[in-house]
Design a protein around this nucleic acid. Structure first.
Lengths: 168, 168
DNA sequence: ATAAACTTTCAATAATTTTTGAATTTTCGG
DNA sequence: CCGAAAATTCAAAAATTATTGAAAGTTTAT
């Protein structure tokens, strides 16, 4: 397979992958393109490669920057902004985990804390099932939260090493 | 907070949560409703509680059954089908992990295997960056795949116990 | 201060996804 | 086997989400 074709496939399937994870196709595609580009690209480069509009490109680059996955690079003597993606995949994964934890897991745990305190007689099976369900989700969620905290701080080698030990 | 309100909030936020994970709102809401219902519900019960159409209800129940999160229950002497969700959250998580691994991670790893073999001179920085990116994603993906396999087979107590040890 | 180069915004439009509900098919007690 | 009850299908409609592109805003070199 030629590089051009391989690149296309990578970008397109990274995009499809993204949509299964609540990330929009274009954002994932821009990320993929930057991941396999040896040098930083401009907004125009990206527009051209992916054949998308200026506004769309701009919006999604900004979103990638918000997620901490892409950085803006200013080359001395150049007017244009360049963009480059973090290439260390472990860092990328940690960054994504960190953001999703903050945006999704933490608010969910807060809500569950509130919901657990529902009024009503625990002998009523509706109340009982509700509280039990909420509590058990909360319990697992809290554990996940702690685990992810450790992961976010960990070096890849340390983390993988420990996982391997665990499975022996 | 009253049970009715708490239930509403739980269902609605579980639905919103789902949409961040590529699951449609209604499917997640039906799941949430069944999770907090002490007894199995019929299609009509679900339609009524969530105020959605028959077709929609049917489609999403079937999808939940495909995911292995809900089971069909036939009560003796009853014509109607009843539905019930697995209440053990650890089992639910394992089931979701299992399905997503099969549907998303495994195909991605297969693709990366192919893309890694791209033709071209490794001294060309475009080729080099492409191969390096693909390889490092593949490496991490394979590790994740193994870890998830262990998790899928594990008992909650064993798994959590080991995680705690790891963080000491 | 100006103008060219570049970035950002956002209302309109397009594409995609979800939902509806009526029609069809299946199931099962009698 | 019949008929009513329940389940399923699917084309059309609605809702949601993504994309465009032109206009407005910024920045920088001179």
């Amino acid at each position: 397979m030629k590089l051009t074709e391989a690149k296309q496939q990578f970008i397109s399937s990274w995009g499809a992958f993204g949509t299964h994870w609540g990330i929009n196709r274009t954002m994932a595609q821009i990320h993929a393109l930057l991941l396999v580009s040896p040098d930083p690209l401009t907004q125009d480069d990206i527009m051209q490669e992916l054949d998308i509009s200026r506004g769309n490109t701009n919006m999604n680059i900004r979103e990638l920057i918000n997620w901490g996955l892409v950085e803006r690079i200013l080359l001395p003597g150049e007017r244009k902004e360049y963009f480059s993606a973090e290439k260390d995949i472990w860092k990328v994964v940690k960054q994504i985990v960190k953001e999703r934890k903050k945006r999704e897991l933490e608010p969910m745990l807060q809500l569950l804390d509130k919901l657990e305190e529902v009024e009503g007689d625990k002998r009523d099976k509706h109340v009982k099932t509700f509280v039990e369900t909420v509590s058990s989700i909360k319990k697992l969620g809290k554990q996940a939260d702690k685990t992810l905290d450790v992961m976010i701080k960990a070096e890849e080698s340390w983390f993988v090493g420990n996982l391997i030990k665990m499975f022996k």
